[in-house]
Design a protein around this nucleic acid. Structure first.
Lengths: 245, 245
DNA sequence: CAGTGGTCTAGACCACAGT
DNA sequence: CTGTGGTCTAGACCACTGT
């Protein structure tokens, strides 16, 4: 029984390869397929499900890209011997926490318009002096400060004046306004907090912080957001899955 | 001129989609295609190059996955407005530095056999007490300590006793012995160094460090390596490119 | 409406691994 | 040698975007 109970619904708007990948992923997460198991070959699977081989292959490729399966020519496809973790996706911390069922609270420390300086103009591909929204937020989890976030968004991209960032994440606000993020570049490093940061984050001068800077681009390739964030390393870490392609 | 000077060599062993992707990437990096440029549609490109549409599509997909292009249905494919950076790959720091033309020096502080404890056995999917190679290295750049790396490899995977890790990276040693890494899970965080670490890294107690733990899996899905590394944040940062799929 | 990417088919041949 | 994934073809229809 190389792959139990996968069925596809051809009248669903969900792509066939996605349906198949979803069900295989669930089989892995529920233990029907365990680490090291080999699944049937692509041709047999495609035949078994009544799909063409390219479609079946696309389903498997999706899980290879997620780091759940590995393929080896001449051998077959196997489940990776790794504990179950989700891969890093293009979301904000707010999304992360909500998905985990936590209830983060966000305080907006500043929301104003500033001219682009050398740093932000370069990151956002706008002229020096161009109008930017500046958003500074402190995010806490059960009363404990977790992250201090500073974001810049060109005025030409969206009007942030109307948004309530105590209730809505920045990325959620983008999505609701038809801006679809596609690519982001992140740099992660560490340093010590200064006095102002320590006060806000509930620590002392000399505490370490994780720093993350990120530039995000939408589906037109346009830079829409640049952020510099500080995270308390005792409460947050970055997890990534790398896949060799 | 939507896509200048792409030619394919059908007698080359390099896959056609790879040849095409390579040349488009070079066109972007050399400025022949600049941020915001739209390339011709898939059908036209395939026709122009004498390829089938799926092959042309695969070439474009490769660059979308790298974060160089973005696609939008009904609109087209455009170059992302981002400064040129390489995407994170599944390599060691040693590979990174060598590629950058730097000459890192590595000192092996320890190479011995230890029994797996609770932590390492869980990370490597071996029994508690199973034999592991332990490798501790200090990496420096032009005399300046950069990273302190501790790695564990099951004895059942490979014999590390013969290797010279002053001259060869761990990943390079894997490759040379037919072990092909495919997937890795990383966690990045920060803390303060203790006294022993500070001495080795050339700093003082109270300095911040970037921490990274990584588990790597080969093309059979087998856990082959677990490492906990410390990086000096003034000399190193993690860069990642995220792509929404 | 025309143009674009998104999905899907039913084959084919090849390269590599293991027996 | 057999079986596997890797690549490639020449079409097709659909969904979405912007005019």
């Amino acid at each position: 029984m190389p792959l139990p109970e996968v069925v596809v619904n051809r009248s669903s708007p969900v792509p066939l390869y996605f349906q198949v990948a979803e069900q295989i992923e669930r089989a892995i997460q529920e233990g029907d397929l365990v680490a090291g198991d080999r699944i049937a070959n692509e041709v047999a699977l495609a035949d078994q499900l009544g799909l063409s081989r390219p479609t079946m292959r696309q389903a498997i490729q999706m899980l290879v890209d997620k780091g759940l399966l590995v393929r080896k020519r001449g051998v077959g496809t196997q489940v990776v011997q790794a504990p179950i973790r989700r891969s890093v996706e293009l979301t904000s911390l707010y999304d992360d926490l909500k998905r985990a069922g936590m209830e983060p609270a966000t305080v907006v420390l500043a929301l104003d318009r500033v001219p682009a300086d050398d740093e932000t103009s370069g990151r956002l591909n706008v002229a020096v002096g161009a109008g930017l929204w500046q958003l500074v937020r402190l995010r806490s989890l059960q009363g404990e400060p977790l992250a201090l976030m500073r974001n810049y968004v060109p005025e030409s991209v969206i009007d942030l004046g109307e948004a309530d960032f105590g209730a809505t994440g920045l990325y959620e606000h983008f999505r609701a306004n038809g801006i679809h993020l596609r690519v982001a570049h992140q740099t992660i490093c560490a340093r010590l907090v200064d006095e102002a940061e320590a006060t806000l984050l509930g620590g002392r001068v000399g505490d370490p912080v994780l720093t993350m800077t990120r530039s995000s681009y939408d589906d037109q390739g346009r830079a829409v957001e640049y952020g510099t964030h500080l995270y308390r390393p005792d409460l947050y870490a970055f997890e990534t899955t790398l896949v060799d392609r």
